[in-house]
Write a protein that binds this DNA or RNA. Structure first.
Lengths: 110, 110
DNA sequence: TAATTATACCTAACTTTCTTAGGTATAATT
DNA sequence: AATTATACCTAAGAAAGTTAGGTATAATTA
């Protein structure tokens, strides 16, 4: 996804957040949106993305609708009811994570 | 380290930062300091810590001095010259990481 | 004083998460 | 005509951490 190992473990909350903000998206679109939002910094690899989407669907966090755009298929993902519930917890976990990082990395003066 | 997968990949920069701030520390002390700073949220497991410390020493990022406190040994780690250089880059990577996360997770209003 | 907890180091098997490197196929651009 | 972009997918391997052990001394608690 990015050369840095820091992003490890962040892909799931990122996807959940993007779907929360954008209603429904297909896989390729998610990679583009992430790149766009981060000005090219965040490159979600397909080898990480698709298996994760499949897992989240299996877990009942996401649901899918397949549509065709011209002759190409698009598999749209959106948050289920359980997924929306999960998205709140996911967001809270991220907040806690960021707070803890700031406690470690803030200048000593604080 | 923490139940959340978010911390995956953060351990190395965390250790480097703690050593940057505290001069020199031994392994057990690092786990305590992390717990203290984050009010118990961040529990660095020894199974993750020690192998990482060994790797960083091998890579020339850290150097060690063994001292005895009473009859117990302590292996103190500190940043080498290369480690201090690395700590700057490590910090910059973290900043970029946090910026990108904020671009994804900030409210849509921004 | 015996048992437990805290301090202090360590490793090995396993799991989770992501990368790398493929594969298929259509549409648009060069 | 060849390349790039769109759009899906998988499988082998690497990287990072968890879990569950092991050794040993010092302090506390029952």
């Amino acid at each position: 996804m990015n050369k840095s190992a820091l992003y490890k473990g962040c892909l799931e909350p990122i996807i959940i957040q993007l779907l929360k903000d954008n209603g429904r998206m297909y896989g390729y679109q998610i990679t583009q949106k992430a790149r766009e939002l981060t000005k090219g910094h965040l490159d979600i690899t397909e080898g990480a993305l698709y298996p994760l989407l499949h897992r989240l669907e299996e877990e009942g966090i996401l649901e899918t609708e397949i549509e065709s755009a011209g002759n190409r298929m698009r598999k749209y993902y959106s948050l289920t009811k359980a997924g929306k519930k999960q998205s709140v917890q996911s967001f809270n976990e991220l907040q806690s994570f960021l707070e803890n990082l700031s406690l470690i990395f803030q200048p000593k003066t604080a």
